[in-house]
């Protein structure tokens, strides 16, 4: 780390240019709650750090086309302080509120949580469940990418060199929609999900589920969008039988590893338990919306 350089970019073009010009290891810094920790523990030895948090596009929250757009570097606490966004996407906020501790959320962002590409990232499953799109800027201009396509494995993303996640857009919500995220950790906070489950539901006026997305965290190399689990709910009143079918599909989709954080057996079992509990919370929120 003898030659470590730090650059703060003012514009997206400036950031992209800095990254493109560096031949060594480059890290993009927003809140720094992963990058700095990894540097201090000798996991990474970057040659260049590009700080993007002074770029206006990555720091704003706004309504857009009936939905929402927020910057990738908006700290978790700023999202938590945004009452309208919290009311619109309580499930996304369930995830954001679980990242680290109060101090960490003061800096950590959803963009950083996504680009760190941990399969256990708490804000990622509910963002996927919300059908969030990422706006990515790079040497070849901007492109829109579904959030589920950004992380491809532990620590790995699909981003090209020089590409930065700028912001996220969340679609307008139909009436009677609700989302929720639950995770299991041995500690109440300052911990990493052993399993995480996000559910996003829309009901019709009769209470029949017309759309659903079920996403699992920490049970595979990346967050899993489980269509079969959603299908078990769609067309039903989300009754006990439908939930039981959904649980079976969730457990069937799990392909976790045995590691220091949990066993295959435990993760698979608890994924089903959390899927049921998250579905019930999402359902209650959808009925109230």
């Amino acid at each position: 780390m003898d030659n470590l350089r730090y650059e703060a970019a003012d514009t997206l073009a400036h950031a992209a240019q800095l990254i493109a010009a560096e031949s060594g290891d480059v890290r993009v810094l927003a809140g720094g709650t992963d990058v700095l920790v990894q540097m201090h523990s000798d996991m990474i030895e970057p040659d260049l750090i590009v700080d993007i948090k002074n770029i206006p596009e990555v720091r704003t929250i706004q309504q857009e086309d009936g939905g929402w757009r927020f910057g990738a570097a908006v700290p978790g606490l700023e999202l938590m302080d945004h009452a309208d966004f919290c009311a619109a996407w309580p499930g996304v906020m369930d995830g954001v509120k679980l990242i680290g501790s109060v101090q960490i959320r003061g800096r950590a962002s959803v963009g950083g949580n996504l680009c760190n590409a941990s399969p256990a990232a708490d804000s990622v499953p509910p963002m996927i469940a919300a059908s969030a799109m990422a706006t990515v800027f790079g040497p070849n201009g901007s492109r829109e990418v579904p959030v589920q396509d950004i992380a491809v494995g532990p620590g790995k993303t699909s981003l090209e060199k020089g590409e930065i996640v700028v912001s996220f857009s969340l679609p307008p919500r139909p009436a009677h929609s609700g989302d929720a995220y639950l995770r299991f950790t041995p500690r109440t906070e300052m911990d990493i999900a052993v399993v995480g489950v996000a559910v996003n539901l829309t009901l019709d006026d009769a209470g029949i589920c017309t759309a659903a997305r079920v996403v699992l965290g920490a049970v595979a190399a990346r967050a899993l969008l489980v269509q079969e689990a959603a299908d078990a709910l769609i067309g039903t009143s989300v009754d006990d039988a439908a939930i039981e079918n959904m649980i079976q599909e969730v457990r069937a989709a799990c392909r976790p590893i045995d590691d220091k954080r949990g066993t295959i057996e435990f993760r698979t079992k608890v994924a089903g338990v959390l899927a049921e509990r998250a579905t019930k919370i999402a359902l209650e929120r959808a009925r109230g919306a």
Binding site: S41, S101, P186, R187, T188, E189, M190, D191, I192, K260, R261
Partner: peptide
Amino acid sequence: GFLDYRVPVASD
């Protein structure tokens, strides 16, 4: 490390 060697936090 304290991430995976889980001493309790205050809320535990």
